[in-house]
Nucleic acid binder design. Structure first.
Lengths: 119, 119
DNA sequence: TCCTGACATAGACGAGCATCGATATTGACG
DNA sequence: CGTCAATATCGATGCTCGTCTATGTCAGGA
């Protein structure tokens, strides 16, 4: 169930919109952006994202991430899947291990959309 | 500003944190930021915010906002309350009308936190 | 080949949330 | 005072979401 070429991840549609404060969002635009923010709007996922992002080589093994929380392994797996599905995290399997990395331009676009900075 | 955190709105605690990608968020920081994003993570609230923000004098009357959606008046009122409670919207009552305005520095801080731009 | 360890999926349960209709509150005005 | 109009609050309802346990999948080593 990798990404289909027909469907853009939510994150890929964000760059199309001017900042929130520039002009009113259309209903359709809002419907596309909300899932992205919804993916971010959870304390566990926020920490996961920032943990991955601040890892030395911008890549983190799931095994490390599991240990950082007091939650079950399936729960962490679920959160990582959510972040991956909206396009905020990339996923790479090497042997038995899976590594996630942050799509920084996606975060930058989203930040610009909210903060009003030109991208 | 340290953490004797009394009753700051969520938005007022965001400026304390370095960008997501700089260093791992603490559990406590994540718990404070998540409600803010949760407030934004709804298509109706996104449109409300951008409607208010792009109004000519950065202020919008509830009566105008109601008409922009196909939702009941209590629902719009509820969404505005959510945005106000987290500190993204300011509220001013003049006569019978209520005007909401965007706290731009709040949005800017949040954008910087996500996008990684220094604030 | 079988076992073990890393990670994902499935299904269930409880809490939270978006929405509604009904009702309360508040201010203006006759 | 009484009424109307703008907005908020309340209580109910159905759906979404975060978490769990149990189980599946897949790669590597003895």
């Amino acid at each position: 169930m990798s990404k289909s070429s027909l469907e853009l991840t939510p994150v890929e549609t964000v760059a199309c919109c001017s900042p929130l404060t520039k002009e009113p969002l259309s209903g359709e635009q809002a419907e596309r952006i909300a899932p992205l923010l919804k993916a971010l709007a959870d304390p566990v996922r926020l920490r996961l994202l920032s943990l991955v992002a601040s890892h030395s080589d911008s890549e983190a093994c799931v095994c490390d991430l599991n240990d950082a929380f007091d939650l079950s392994q399936p729960t962490i797996s679920h959160h990582l899947k959510v972040l991956h599905e909206v396009g905020l995290l990339d996923r790479a399997k090497r042997g038995v291990w899976v590594y996630y990395s942050v799509r920084r331009e996606a975060l930058a676009d989203l930040g610009a959309l909210i903060g009003g900075v030109a991208s």
